[in-house]
Amino acid sequence: MSPVIGVLAIQGDVREHAHCLEQLDVEVRLVKTAEQLKGIAGLVIPGGESTTMSILAVKNDLFGPLRELRTQVPMYGSCAGLIMLADSISDGRPDQETIGGLSITAKRNAFGRQVDSFEIDLHISAIGKPDYHAVFIRAPLVEAASSAVEVLAAIPADSSLTGADQIVAVRQDNLLATSFHPELTSDLRIHKYFVDMVRSV
């Protein structure tokens, strides 16, 4: 039986994530309410605007059920989704709530504003060769990560503006997060990696 994977449909590029997952032999459910979270085997938190997503999750009483679900099933967050899964945010609004679970500090809009959004090829050993073509849009960065966090990808120091490695993909147990948007390319390897996480639970 195909597992049901939810895509949090508050806002953002929900459709693109759903489209990627549908090609991987899973059933996709768009989720806006606590009721719809019941029975899913995994959840994707899409790209979008983390401030908006957080405010609307508060208004619609979703944080409680999401935090509970996070301890039970795998979750994957891209871009805004990475921020939603971070335990702390270095420069969000002081009242910005997150689901948490990833022992990282996320820095919002770490690369600058929209004019600084970019594409780059990344080496990600967890998904193998060739390099992954990653799209960053007003993207966040993993500024700090605890030792419990596995770093899956970083922009190497010699290509990064800061001159240091910049962490852009992480995993901690059942939680996966990327600063970039695999749903905007046709390369399904990141989604497949997440679906494998769901299937192996």
């Binding site: 806002q11 953002g12 908006t52 871009c79 959004s117 594409e119 799209v135 849009i137």
Partner: peptide
């Protein structure tokens, strides 16, 4: 990245 930025605004 230009069109993708608009994708992130969807539903808003």
């Amino acid at each position: 990245v230009k069109r993708g930025m608009a994708d992130m605004l969807k539903g808003g």
